[in-house]
Design a binder for these strands. Structure first.
Lengths: 168, 168
DNA sequence: TCAAACTTTCAATACTTATTGAAAGTTTTA
DNA sequence: TAAAACTTTCAATAAGTATTGAAAGTTTGA
């Protein structure tokens, strides 16, 4: 396989991965492109390499910055902005986990809490069973969430910090 | 909040969760419905409760069975099939992780391996850097994958089994 | 202060994915 | 073996998402 071909395949692959996990395909492709670029790239370069429009490139670069996966960079003598991806993959994973927790899991937990509030006693036994079940789910999601948080913050924790070092 | 309202909200919520994670919304809703049903349900009942067509209900029930999240059940004196969801949430999480590993992560690793094969030496230094980067990503994804496998099989592992028991 | 360089926005449009429903297929019972 | 009960399939269509590109907005340098 040649370099150019490999590069393209990698970008496609990362894009597919994104789709599978609920992330906009183009956003994942832009991320892939920046992940394998040694230099930071301009919007123009991203448009060119991926064959996408200015609006699309701009939008997805913003989104990546919003996710803390890409940094804006200014070069002296250049008026336009350049973009560079976070290169440390462990950082990337932590930030994705952090953002998804914030955007999805926390609201989910709040909603479950609300739903579990239905008054089981005033209603049917079916309703009571439902309320219990929702509380159970709530507890479970809460625990999964804490586990993820523990992993994200593993470096700060002497015990998991050790485990992490062994695995890295 | 009343029972009926709570139930509907829960189903919507689980559906949204599914969308966020690359799972068909209706499939997640069917799963939600079965998760909170004490009795197993027929296709008819699923259609009725969610207001979806026969084809859609059938398709998503099959898919859930394929994911090992729902069981087919036959009741005596009844000709039609009934469906029941796995109730143990830890089992649910493990099976989702198992399926996604099998369907997405394993192929991803194979593809990365292929891409990393480009011959860096015969090409530019840029190509060499690319090959190294892909190998690095491959290693990282591989480690994440092993970590997930370890968690899935935690019960069989004395060390992580202990940690799991504490967390549960 | 102006205009060139650059970035952002967003309505129109294209693309992707999910859903319907009726027809075809299968199984069961009598 | 026939027909009723049930399940599956799939082409047509609807619904949901992403992309374009041109216009509007902003910043910079002379």
């Amino acid at each position: 396989m040649q370099f150019k071909e490999g590069k393209e395949q990698f970008i496609q692959l990362w894009g597919t991965l994104g789709s599978d996990w609920g992330i906009n395909r183009t956003m994942a492709q832009v991320h892939a492109l920046l992940l394998i670029s040694r230099e930071s790239l301009s919007t123009e370069q991203v448009m060119e390499e991926l064959g996408i429009s200015r609006g699309n490139a701009n939008m997805n670069l913003r989104e990546l910055i919003d996710w803390n996966l890409v940094y804006r960079e200014l070069k002296k003598g250049e008026r336009k902005e350049f973009f560079r991806a976070e290169q440390d993959l462990w950082e990337v994973a932590k930030r994705v986990a952090h953002e998804r927790r914030r955007r999805e899991i926390q609201p989910l937990l709040n909603n479950l809490k609300e739903i579990a509030k239905i008054d089981g006693k005033k209603d049917s036994p079916e309703a009571e069973a439902f309320a219990d079940r929702v509380k159970e789910i709530q507890r479970f999601v809460g625990k999964l969430d804490s586990a993820v948080e523990t992993v994200i913050k593993a470096e700060e924790n002497w015990f998991f910090g050790r485990i992490l070092k062994i695995m890295k």
